[in-house]
């Protein structure tokens, strides 16, 4: 009986590419979202302080 061809490197290459891409994409998105959420928090804090200081205090 003939043995099946030895082509494991191709198999591993395909799976490695797929997994690396999935992980990279998911990681990138969660990193971006954390950044976005931090920015969102800062912005809303800024907004609160801005609202608490009345506008007439602006001038000298």
């Amino acid at each position: 009986m003939e043995l099946p061809p030895q082509n494991l490197p191709f198999l591993f290459a395909a799976f490695a590419v797929a997994w690396i891409v999935f992980f990279a994409y998911a990681g990138y998105m969660s990193w971006k979202r954390q950044t976005a959420q931090r920015e969102l928090r800062e912005l809303s804090d800024e907004w609160q302080t801005q609202r608490n200081t009345p506008p007439e205090n602006d001038g000298p």
């Binding site: 099946p4 061809p5 082509n7 494991l8 191709f10 395909a14």
Partner: peptide, 19 residues
């Protein structure tokens, strides 16, 4: 099962087709 004709590389099929 390992494909008799194509060998192990046939296992790509299980992710390639769904993707």
């Amino acid at each position: 099962p390992t494909d008799a004709v194509l060998g192990d590389v046939q296992r790509i099929f299980y992710i390639h087709v769904p993707i």
